[in-house]
Design a protein around this nucleic acid. Sequence first.
DNA 1: GAAGGACGTTGATCTAACGCAAGTGTTTTT
DNA 2: AAAAACACTTGCGTTAGATCAACGTCCTTC
Lengths: 239, 239
Amino acid sequence: MSTTIVSSEVEKLAEIPLLKRLSTEAREQLLRGATKKSVSRGEMIFFQDDKADAFFIVLEGWVKVFRATSSGDEAVVGVFTRGQTFAEGAAFTNSNYPASGEAVTDSVVLCIPVAHLAKSIAADPNIALAMMSSLSMHLHQLVLQIEGLKTHTGAQRVAEFLLNLSSEPAGSCTLVLPYDKALIAGRLGMKPESLSRAFQKLKSYGVEVKQNRAIISNVQALRTLVEQERTVVMHSSHG
Amino acid sequence: MSTTIVSSEVEKLAEIPLLKRLSTEAREQLLRGATKKSVSRGEMIFFQDDKADAFFIVLEGWVKVFRATSSGDEAVVGVFTRGQTFAEGAAFTNSNYPASGEAVTDSVVLCIPVAHLAKSIAADPNIALAMMSSLSMHLHQLVLQIEGLKTHTGAQRVAEFLLNLSSEPAGSCTLVLPYDKALIAGRLGMKPESLSRAFQKLKSYGVEVKQNRAIISNVQALRTLVEQERTVVMHSSHG
DNA sequence: GAAGGACGTTGATCTAACGCAAGTGTTTTT
DNA sequence: AAAAACACTTGCGTTAGATCAACGTCCTTC
């Protein structure tokens, strides 16, 4: 299911980070070649190793990007939602997608063909700057992800994930897990069983998880856990 | 130690991937604001959390980029050598370096101020395309790194590392480890002790390591090890 | 409201990798 | 040439997290 963008929609899309800083003309130029695509939960958006001929922006829903080995193991490389850009890296390599993209909820994505992007950049170089900023953000995010994997325990990564969801500076808060636990586990580089056990450990830090709702009784306590040294966490009597 | 680029040098620098596709004028424009910097082994090139006001290209030597937690743990995010660009992501975030850069051998790096890059892109938008390609490559590399961490054992990652160093399609080959083992370990997300043990395991796959020299007796055998499923490797009687 | 299935938890067991400490070998310094 | 500094290895104990399998719980569908 794929439709072009009508000009009345362009205004609404201006809030998307990638398009925000562009002039109205540049925005219209870029969107002229874009199509809106509705995808159902579980539907693939692009396939690893396919020719990379487009990049995407999430308009509605959640999308996961993951790499699968020939042997069936998979590694989640990113999970994106409203306003976020994904697979833009592929747009400049002139090669194939290094990962696959799949809708994890019913979603709507904006699909921008690489060929059209090139044309648009030629027409207005400011588009290139916006793209670079977007690429840099993903680069930064991946750097953080790698650091997390190497220097944090599972429970710490879960705590960090919860803290990112909340935006409370301190005190207590309730929040809704944005997607199912199997995906959260993947996102954090662990198995669902381990996530479940990590939640158990976090109970002693005041985290209560029921269904897709998490209650943090003390945001600050959780934050100190995340900032603790890996070794200290491991030897602590807490968990 | 920091000097500007004399025009007789510009020609020589044309082989650098980032500069390769640029016109002579664009190349000269970009290099006009660049400085050459000599750094000794162990010297810092930029510091995590500092204002990101420049990015770099390695002219000579090896440079590591790593993230350190407040508690002393560190995660190597990349190791770069001759012709490779690093910290370009920071140049577009308008913020701080997410990691630190350090020379691991005596090195020479080209330092390009962010302010000058912006000016140069305004003068010639093609520079932006070159930067994007460079950013994309690093993005791709980090994606692979994450996948490796999640789906490969230590020994597999070491094998992969060795295969990347060799460029033999098959048969046997001898190669020189490009930097010390502690850094190789960091690069592969493990501790030096674990690297040592991984080398032990690889002996049964025909890999002999003496000092900084590695001899692979059967490249293909090693490659099948890398491509094996994690589970299979773990349960194998081999090592 | 019973049946079936997806999703999540829990338990038991196993192992890759870590931490520490002691050892060996190699390189640099004096 | 001896000593000191460094780089790497090895042994041993510990553990975070994976695997496999069973079980519970919600949520749909007929």
